[in-house]
Structures are given as C-alpha cells and as structure tokens.
C-alpha cells in the first residue's frame, strides 16, 4: 500500500494548476484534501504521472450567499460546510461525512469530482440542481449537476480541468436521511430531498452509478403542505424508481426497501424545515 512513483507540483493559482494539468497531458491528478485520492494511490488503483496539489491555492475557500444560491469555493472543507447556516441541507449532509479528521481535510470539490454515488455531497448537489464551475486549458465552463455525474467514480470533468467553485441553490425546504452500517461510513442508501417552490427533487445515493434523481412525475409537483399520505406515496414511488444491485452490504430488495424508508424520513424532515420567505 505505497503509492507508485509520480512527480509533484504545488500549484500557486488556478491558472498554474490548469497549466500543470495541461502539461501532464491528461496524466495529471488534482490533490486537495486527499481523502479519496490518497487511498486510491496507496492501492495503486490510480497512476498519475503528476500530482497537482491545489490545497494551498488562495481564494478557493469562500462561502457566499447571492440571490438564493450558495457560492462555495472548491476548497471548502466538509467541516466548514457542516458549520455554516446559509445552506442547511448541505450542512446536514456534510455532518454525515466520515469522521472529524476526514471532514477537516476533505473538500467539497474533491467529493464532487470523485463522484462516489454513495457520497453525501453529490446527492445534495443534484437535489439542489446545483452546478460546478470548471477551469481548463480552453477557459472556464459551468456543468450542471444533472450532467456532472456520468458513472460510478466518473464525472464529466476532462483530465485537464479542475473545479473552482460550486453553486448550491438554497431550497425552500429540505430533508436528508441516510442509512450506513457504521457512524461515518458511506451510505448504504441516502436520500437528499429539496423543494424549490412547487418542485420537489428527491435524489437517492447508493443505488446506482450516479446519485439517482427520482422521476416521480406529477407527484414531484407539490403545493404547500406535504401530507403523510403524500410522503408514503412519494417514498413508494422512489423505491419503484430505483434499480439497485446486490452487494456485500445488502440485496437489491433490501436497498429498495431502504430507499422507501429513507425517502420517507427525508420528506418528513422536509415538511418541518420550511424556510421563512426572505
């Protein structure tokens, strides 16, 4: 469990990092908090030629609310996200990530770029229909949450791109529920639910290659209160809509049942977290 050889570049700015990635010709990898990359390196599952360390690039740790959207820098730590009050859904979800040591190192953009379908923040990004800002050799672009996650541990980022910032719209009401084997583990199943006006977005983690946006059809349009019956119907619809696989921690059948339970819990929470109109 020792990483293979690589060369190391400590980036001083986004431009510097992007240039280093470009110079690596697709064989570069960004290191920030290191909570996903370092274990992958130790297991020799990744063999980048160049590690581009962006951990000390200034100006990437901001948290700012503008027009109902939380603009977060790429290097915002899970601990900072968990501790802020501007986006309560992101705060709640961040508290479920790992343990203190992991939360104090791991970064928002790192988690999104790693694109683990059982991780908390990709589910939140998708539930909030957020987006990432990306810098690359040909300039910057914006990738919406629905397009960012391509498959398990695969994002739409090019090898020469880095996330510089994240947009997280603040929902009018929200809920988050997770079932994990142990405190701090990746979810067996997690559910992030967000209501924007009369639109409900429910995203299930741990049941597919990407955080799964539940297609609830007309059920996803709500006005005012969500009744207990409606919660049950939505939960059943979510369970119907997912297509999980068997694995060591449970059968597909079990994950479907958990999807229903976690969706219900998230929606119950959502009914109690209505944001006061500004």
């Amino acid at each position: 469990m020792k990483c293979p050889p690589f060369s190391y570049h400590r980036a001083t700015s986004v431009d510097d990092a992007v240039a280093a990635l470009a110079a690596a010709g697709g064989e570069g990898k960004i290191l920030a908090g290191g909570q996903s990359l370092v274990p992958v390196l130790a297991l020799r599952l990744a063999r980048p030629d160049v590690i581009v360390d962006v951990d000390r690039v200034p100006g990437l740790d901001g948290l700012e609310l503008r027009d109902g959207v939380l603009h977060a820098g790429a290097l915002v730590r899970h601990l900072a996200l968990a501790g802020q009050a501007l986006h309560p859904l992101a705060a709640e979800a961040a508290r479920w990530i790992g343990h203190t040591a992991i939360r104090s190192r791991g970064t928002l953009a790192g988690s999104l770029a790693h694109a683990d379908p059982a991780a908390e923040l990709p589910a939140v990004l998708r539930a909030c229909d957020g987006a990432v800002h990306v810098a690359g050799p040909s300039g910057t672009r914006r990738i919406g949450a629905d397009d960012l996650f391509v498959g398990a541990l695969q994002s739409a980022l090019e090898d020469t791109e880095m996330i510089t910032g994240v947009e997280l719209p603040v929902p009018d009401a929200w809920g988050f529920a997770e079932f994990a084997r142990r405190h701090g583990d990746f979810a067996v199943v997690s559910v992030a639910a967000a209501r924007f006006g009369d639109r409900l977005r429910v995203v299930v983690g741990g049941v597919a290659g990407v955080p799964h946006l539940v297609d609830a059809g007309d059920l996803a349009t709500v006005d005012g209160e969500i009744s207990e019956d409606r919660v049950a119907i939505l939960a059943a619809a979510a369970a119907d809509d997912v297509d999980p696989a068997d694995d060591l921690h449970g059968s597909a059948r079990y994950r479907r049942a958990l999807t229903e339970q976690m969706t219900a819990r998230a929606l119950e929470q959502l009914t109690t977290t209505v944001r006061e109109p500004a």
Partner: peptide, 11 residues
C-alpha cells in the same frame, strides 16, 4: 447479524 440480514429474516 447485520441490518440486511435482520430485514431479510423479517421480510
């Protein structure tokens, strides 16, 4: 005795 096993036994 895992949660999955408990659930499978009950269901």
């Amino acid at each position: 005795v895992t949660p999955a096993r408990v659930w499978e036994l009950v269901n």
